[in-house]
């Protein structure tokens, strides 16, 4: 199968300038390849850098070393070096980030929040809203809520709105940050089904799944994020 993610020798150290320049190495020499139709689950103890790796793949975090190639329209784009407008374009049509953390936009309805990624890909507004509605329905968001801004929704409803937003547009590479955490069994099954559909259409998935049942149901292999050596700089006292 086609290689879609090729991350080589990534290193990432946080430098906390407000703590006298304290250095926290999180990723050291991490390489990861993911093919079309494959799901890789990141594992490792808490603090090992699973979430940092996922955010680095999305270019949300900067890496100091390494290359971070994502295949877009048959061309490799190194997300560690791409210009901002290129990264925006990759995220629009190729690379999705699915998390449960909804950043509410004042006054925008749940339906429009979910439809937005499709409209950005050039879909007609009405078609996009129809598809958004169908997905919200699958995720058991009652139709009476669709036209309301999710600021007043329950935590669980907000999570599912954000999952719908992350999965509505069929992007070929998906990064999943605990997409099923704290969902009830019925909704967890729906999300697993959605991820399987993405795999079946040839998407490459990289995810953090704390829930073992979900991991077993979706992941083809595990990737243990290697621990970076914590040789933190001496702090003068």
């Amino acid at each position: 199968m086609t290689l879609l993610i090729a991350a080589r020798q990534l290193s990432k150290t946080f430098v906390l300038h407000q703590q006298d320049g304290l250095e926290l190495p999180v990723l050291a020499d991490v390489s990861l390849e993911v093919h079309a139709g494959e799901c890789v689950a990141l594992t490792g103890p808490s603090g090992a850098g699973k979430s940092t790796l996922l955010k680095a793949l999305y270019a949300n975090y900067l890496v100091q070393h390494g290359t971070l190639n994502i295949l877009r329209h048959g061309r490799w784009i190194d997300m560690a070096r791409a210009a901002p407008h290129e990264i925006v374009a990759v995220r629009r049509d190729t690379l999705g980030y699915v998390s449960q953390f909804l950043r509410v936009i004042p006054r925008v309805s749940a339906l429009d929040i979910v439809a937005e990624p499709l409209i950005e890909q050039g879909e007609e507004r009405e078609t996009a809203r129809e598809r958004a509605g169908a997905l919200l329905e699958r995720l058991n968001i009652a139709e009476r809520l669709w036209n309301l801004p999710p600021a007043t929704f329950s935590g669980g409803e907000q999570q599912r709105v954000n999952i719908a937003r992350g999965l509505v547009a069929p992007r070929p590479v998906l990064l999943l940050d605990e997409p099923t955490a704290s969902l009830d069994a019925a909704n967890r099954a729906v999300v697993v089904e959605l991820m399987r559909e993405a795999k079946a259409r040839g998407a490459a998935l990289v995810g953090i799944f704390h829930d073992e049942a979900t991991r077993d149901a979706i992941a083809d292999r595990l990737f243990t994020v290697p621990l970076a050596r914590r040789h933190t700089k001496e702090i003068a006292t």
């Binding site: 946080f14 300038h17 407000q18 270019a59 949300n60 975090y61 900067l62 901002p84 990264i87 925006v88």
Partner: peptide, 21 residues
Amino acid sequence: AGLTDQILDDPQHPYTQLLVS
């Protein structure tokens, strides 16, 4: 300078880190 979410979530410069925090 950079992507907005990167600057806010992973600020590099001491001044940006101060602003964000």
